[in-house]
């Protein structure tokens, strides 16, 4: 097991280095002078020179890369060309909003996806199976931003049940302790703000969680059907276990293995989907911030966001792989 962990950890290092090279190269791959690109065609020579100096663009390429990586490791991602603020401060201010949205979306996806997948597998070819699997198929093909717009139209505009956009009503003011409004409002014992934050979260989380939910439902169903054919499930039934015991104790535990891997891989999908969902719902997370940065060619923001998200993605994949090896001895023995 230890050798597997070491091997897997070592394997992640070149990938991380590769991502850092790719992200670093961005600014140099763009056609034209990077400083001029960021400041615009009409920038004067002094500002362009100052930016070149500030970003170290006058230094040899290798030295620039070394500085980029060593600064990034220390959490220094440079200064935003637009706001003049350190990129990491702006990132950390917005990151909790994206994480909160992604976690709620993932919880929704796991609960509904697992439930629909298990029932569909157990009641195969029933009306529930057909309806849930058709919904899941539609969910996989659904553009997340369109689903978001439709949800806004029906639940916010037509029915008036939920807010159209944003993270919290203007009448509420929450002290940012963790940056997660659900937690911060509870810490402040402001339950009205908590309820308001919940209401703001419902539609974006529903939109963002639909594709992962559909994938989890389809995957769980397929995996459960496969496992239900196994001898040990037949033995459990023969022993006189109830259907609930067979499903929850014997089948589900084994059927969940591929599902766990898929859930791990979904973190990337969620972050990517968050970019589109945040734009639709004016959610003040890193997605919306990143798109503004792309439109304004604020490279330090684009570079840092890409590097941090890719690193999180790689680390989560690593954790999932290791967890998988703990659950499934076949992996580590191979």
């Amino acid at each position: 097991m230890i050798s597997y962990v070491i091997k897997r950890l070592l394997w992640a290092i070149p990938t991380l280095l590769g991502v850092s090279i790719l992200v670093f190269s961005m600014i140099h791959l763009a056609p034209g002078d990077p400083a001029l690109l960021m400041l615009g065609e009409h920038a004067n020579k002094e500002s362009v020179d100052a930016l070149r100096e500030q970003m170290g663009l006058n230094k040899p390429l290798l030295e620039q890369y070394y500085l980029f990586v060593s600064n990034a490791v220390q959490g220094d991602f440079g200064i935003s060309t637009l706001s003049g603020e350190p990129v990491i401060d702006e990132f950390l201010e917005r990151f909790p909003a994206t994480v909160e949205l992604s976690i709620v979306a993932l919880i929704f996806a796991i609960i509904i996806g697992l439930f629909a997948g298990i029932i569909s597998a157990v009641k195969r070819y029933s009306l529930f199976d057909y309806v849930s699997m058709t919904t899941a198929l539609a969910g996989v093909s659904m553009p997340v931003f369109w689903l978001g717009l439709m949800l806004i139209y029906f639940f916010s505009i037509e029915l008036g049940w939920l807010p159209v956009s944003g993270r919290l009503g203007y009448e509420f003011d929450i002290d940012k302790v963790t940056g997660f409004y659900l937690i911060d409002s509870i810490l402040m014992k402001d339950y009205e703000a908590f309820w308001n934050a919940c209401k703001h979260l419902v539609l974006p989380a529903l939109a963002l969680g639909t594709i992962p939910m559909a994938i989890i439902a389809r995957m769980t169903r397929a995996s459960m059907i496969e496992v239900m054919k196994e001898d040990y499930v037949r033995t459990a039934k023969a022993k006189g276990c109830t259907q609930g015991q067979v499903i929850l104790i014997h089948a589900l535990k084994n059927a969940l293995m591929p599902v766990i891997t898929v859930i791990g891989l979904m973190v990337g999908t969620l972050f990517a989907g968050a970019i589109l969902t945040e734009t639709t719902f004016s959610w003040p997370g890193i997605g919306k911030w990143l798109i503004n940065a792309v439109n304004q060619r604020d490279f330090p923001i684009i570079q840092s966001t890409t590097l941090i998200i890719a690193t999180i993605f790689i680390v989560i994949n690593l954790i999932v792989d290791l967890l998988y090896a703990v659950i499934n001895p076949k992996i580590r023995l191979n």
Binding site: V19, V23, M26, A272, G273, I275, I309, A310
Partner: peptide, 13 residues
């Protein structure tokens, strides 16, 4: 290792 839409955004940028 970079989510698809994010990589596409990077390339477009």
């Amino acid at each position: 290792s970079i989510p698809a839409i994010l990589l596409a955004i990077v390339i477009v940028s």
